[in-house]
Design a protein around this nucleic acid. Structure first.
Lengths: 267, 267
DNA sequence: CCTTGACCTTGACGCTGCGTCAGGGCAGCA
DNA sequence: TGCTGCCCTGACGCAGCGTCAAGGTCAAGG
């Protein structure tokens, strides 16, 4: 007769595992000797090896129980199911590998590649790091909400950068992050922005509207990260504009006031 | 300002997950409103999306914490380590798939293929199922203890089956499982066994000895599963044999009595 | 006879990443 | 005032054991 540690040694498992299988009902509790020790016969070793074999094949212990006493058909079904799970887990991990490979390559996983390209272009134009970071955070929010519209937005933004006037404005605009909340130069920048906005046809605003709650969130990012933000917005309002993320001529804003589901573009 | 459910919705996670990240220290606890509710600003959404992105890349939460504030080098090292773990897990699951595929194919995973072949041959010789099962259980024990010697044993047993006399003896021997413990025909079978054993050179015994504890275990299997086992052993002893699994002429047994590490062959 | 060391017993917490109650507070609406 | 819906904390549950903790047993040696 074997003690629990001998049994465990024969099957190549730990004593703890054996007791666990007892507790789970996979292995029947054997008789005890007068000291209360479990005493096993040879069949227990065979049972235990069977359990181990299934467990090592990736079968969850709960299913080992059924499988030990299943007919051929039920067994085949169960095995197929387990194999499916294993395949899914492998695919999952492969996807994880790709993701962390992209992480290692320096990509921000929270953004699609076209957004990364756009941000790099911003940086190469001389826009300060903090500003690019703020812009990046804003786009992370958009990408999380509307991933399918990211290519559209990025194409739009990239096209805007093809205009030298916009590029220059962008570089100058970027500087405001260093200015105090009441710097008078803010008004001048706001006016140049307003002039630029007027060149954009009304239809383009409509196309790029974001859901109102998301827009509010992005406005908040702007207001919190840029000291002069509030003054810029006030000045723009004086020039007939409303909002920032969902920027619109006031007239247009009134006409679509009830409609909140059309996306727009931030910053 | 956002409530916890809004924050969660923006990042595409559950409320429970957000609280979990707070508890883990991954995401800072925000200020509360007067009702004690957590109120989040936009940056929290970005932080949360970052955490989610790493977690979905298979990074354990404990490491997400370090990685969020790691320099480029530490980051690369950590990523490499995580990738290694993922590769290992994929290999593991692929091995599991192969194992359960063999299970589905009807193989007994607890036995090497050559043992399965041997057992099938036994069955095809007309040996009753219960007997083959007992033999299988015995070999499962051996395979678990001495996997590297299984090819040797199986070759040996298979060779024995090439002898028509042995085959016939085996078929007859198999019947004893149905006999009562004191069936007089048992003595006759034991005598035929003894005759057969005498044809085996002493050197062959030595080569096939099993460790004594394993042999004792296998003897127990025999004694417990075959009613007439004890009577057979008594008769064999009268003919000058000792043991069963580690069967030896008594003289040989005495000469190697102190030596317990040499393997032998069961049944 | 006592001690020592190796083994045995049960019970319970720990790890991962949350899901899922349980029990109760707060806010707005009819 | 009650209903509904969201928020709070606290705690258990899941898989498969690892790892104490606190104590009983057994065989051997001094």
């Amino acid at each position: 007769m074997l003690t629990i540690s001998q049994l465990a040694a024969y099957a190549g498992v730990t004593v703890r595992a054996v007791r666990h299988y007892h507790a789970k009902g996979l292995l029947p509790e054997p008789d005890r000797d007068r000291a209360g020790y479990r005493r096993y016969g040879a069949p227990a070793v065979v049972d235990l090896i069977r359990i181990r074999t299934m467990a090592e094949a990736g079968v969850p212990l709960a299913r080992v129980q059924e499988l030990l006493s299943a007919d051929a058909h039920a067994f085949a079904v169960a095995v197929e199911e387990i194999d499916q799970r294993l395949r899914a887990e492998i695919r999952e991990r492969q996807a994880h590998r790709e993701k962390i490979a992209r992480l290692a390559a320096g990509d921000s996983l929270a953004l699609p590649p076209e957004a990364v390209t756009y941000l790099e272009r911003l940086r190469s134009l001389g826009v300060p790091g903090v500003m690019v970071d703020a812009e990046r955070d804003a786009w992370i929010l958009v990408a999380a909400q509307l991933p399918e519209r990211m290519p559209f937005y990025m194409q739009m933004k990239t096209q805007q950068l093809d205009d030298p006037g916009v590029r220059e404005l962008y570089r100058d605009l970027a500087q405001i992050i260093y200015w105090s909340a009441e710097d008078p130069r803010l008004d001048e920048v706001a006016d140049r922005l307003s002039d630029e906005f007027e060149r954009i046809p009304v239809s383009a605003w409509e196309e790029a509207l974001l859901p109102d709650d998301l827009a509010a969130l992005l406005d908040e990012v702007f207001l919190e990260s840029v000291p002069g933000a509030r003054r810029i917005l006030r000045r723009l309002e004086g020039r007939g504009w409303t909002g920032w993320t969902n920027l619109r001529p006031r007239s247009a804003a009134e006409s679509v006031a009830a409609d909140a589901d059309v996306p727009s573009v931030p910053s």
